[in-house]
C-alpha cells in the first residue's frame, strides 16, 4: 500500500519509510532486551494498539491534508461520545452491533459537520472551532453517559481480540479500511480535490473543485473515522469511558507528522500513519522493557521522536531515497 500520488510529490521521495524503519529498530531492541522470547506476542500487541493510533491518525490526516491551519481537536471528545452512544445502543447484545456502529458513525459525522459549520459560517479558525466543539461534544457525552460503563457485546469483544495466527483481525480490518481510504484520497476526484486544496486553494477553486463541499465532507469523513475507532476502542477496553479518547489528541497529530505527511497539508502518506503508529507504541514498549528511570524514558522519547521526524522531513527525503532506493523500487512496481 504505497500511496505516493500527491501532485507535488516527486518520484521516489518517500519520507514515510523512516517510521517503519524506526518501528523495526524499536521492536528489535525490545526483543533483544526482553527476558522471554515474546516476539509474536509483541507483534500482536503492537498491531492491536497501533490500530487505535492509526485510525485516529488517518482521521487527522484527512483534515490536515486540507491545508494550513486545518486540524481536528475534537477527535478525543468525539471518540468519547460516539463510543458511549455505540455501547448504549448495543446494550450488550450482539444483534445490535451493526446498529450501534452505525449510530456511532452517524454521531461522528454530525460532529464533523458541526465542526465545518463553525469554521465556514462563523469564520472561526479550525483550531479554535474544533476545540470549542470538543467542549460541547464532551459535555454531551458526560450528560448522556454519566460515567456509566456499558459492557460491549460478547461477539464484538471477541472480534476485536480475535487473531489469525499472531495477527489481530481488528488490525487487518483497519488496514483494509486505510487502503480503501488511500484509494479515495489519491485516486478519486474528491480525494484529489482535498490534496489540491491543501496545495493551493485558489488554484483548486480555479480548477473547478467544489471547495466548500470538499471541506465539509472531509471534516465529516474524518470525524466518522474517529467515531468508528471509538467503537473499536470501547470494545477492546471492556466498555466506553468518558476519558478514553483523551490520549489520542496529540498522538493523532504526531503519527501524521512522524509518518512523513506535511503538517501544512497537500502532501499526505497514509501508509506513514501506520508506520508511525507502530513506532509510537513500540517506542514506549522499548523504553519500558529497558526499564529506564522515568525521567530518562521521557527524555529518550522526545529525542527519538525528533530524530525520526527530522529524517522524515521534506528536506531530508533525499536521504531516505538514497538508503532505501532498492526497497522503493520494489514497492513501486505493483501498481
Amino acid at each position: 500500500m504505497n500511496t505516493r500520488f500527491s501532485i507535488k510529490s516527486t518520484v521516489g521521495s518517500a519520507p514515510w519509510i523512516w517510521s517503519y524503519a524506526a518501528a523495526a529498530v524499536m521492536a528489535l531492541v525490545t526483543i533483544t532486551f526482553s527476558r522471554a522470547s515474546g516476539g509474536l506476542d509483541l507483534l500482536t500487541a503492537s498491531m492491536s494498539f497501533a490500530t487505535f493510533f492509526a485510525l485516529t491518525g488517518v482521521a487527522q490526516l484527512f483534515v490536515i491534508t486540507l491545508g494550513p491551519g486545518n486540524i481536528d481537536l475534537s477527535i478525543p471528545a468525539n471518540i468519547n461520545l460516539s463510543a458511549a452512544v455505540a455501547m448504549q445502543v448495543m446494550g450488550g447484545s450482539d444483534t445490535m452491533v451493526l446498529i450501534g456502529l452505525l449510530a456511532a458513525m452517524a454521531v461522528g459525522s454530525l460532529v464533523g459537520l458541526g465542526n465545518y459549520l463553525l469554521i465556514a459560517l462563523l469564520k472561526i479558525p479550525p483550531i479554535i472551532a474544533t476545540l470549542a466543539s470538543s467542549f460541547v461534544v464532551q459535555s454531551i457525552a458526560i450528560a448522556y453517559a454519566g460515567g456509566y460503563r456499558v459492557q460491549p457485546p460478547p461477539g464484538l469483544k471477541e472480534f476485536v481480540r480475535a487473531k489469525i495466527g499472531p495477527v489481530p483481525l481488528m488490525a487487518l480490518a483497519a488496514i483494509l479500511i486505510t487502503m480503501c481510504l488511500a484509494v479515495l484520497l489519491h485516486k478519486t476526484p474528491f480525494g484529489r480535490g482535498i490534496t489540491a486544496l491543501g496545495q493551493n486553494p485558489t488554484a483548486a477553486r480555479l480548477a473547478n473543485i467544489a471547495v466548500e463541499r470538499t471541506r465539509a465532507l472531509t471534516y465529516a469523513l474524518a470525524a466518522t473515522i474517529a467515531a468508528f475507532c471509538g467503537v473499536l476502542l470501547a470494545a477492546f477496553s471492556g466498555g466506553s469511558s468518558l476519558e478514553m479518547g483523551n490520549e489520542y489528541l496529540l498522538s493523532s497529530i504526531a503519527v501524521v507528522v512522524i509518518g512523513g505527511t506535511a503538517i501544512t497539508g497537500g502532501r499526505s502518506f497514509l501508509s506513514g500513519v501506520w508506520g508511525a503508529s507502530f513506532f509510537l507504541f513500540l517506542l514506549i514498549t522499548m523504553l519500558n522493557a529497558l526499564g529506564a528511570s522515568p525521567g530518562l524514558r521521557l527524555m529518550m522519547m522526545g529525542i527519538i521522536i525528533c530524530l525520526v521526524v527530522f529524517l522524515a522531513s521534506f528536506r531530508n527525503a533525499g536521504i531516505g531515497q538514497a538508503v532505501f532506493a532498492p526497497l522503493l523500487k520494489a514497492s513501486r512496481r505493483p501498481r
Partner: peptide, 22 residues
Amino acid sequence: TVFGQWTQTVSQREVAGILPGL
C-alpha cells in the same frame, strides 16, 4: 514497571506492551 497515568486505557496499552517480554 510501566506508567499508566491512572487511566484504564493507558494502563491496558502499557501492560499489553511489556507483557510479551515478561
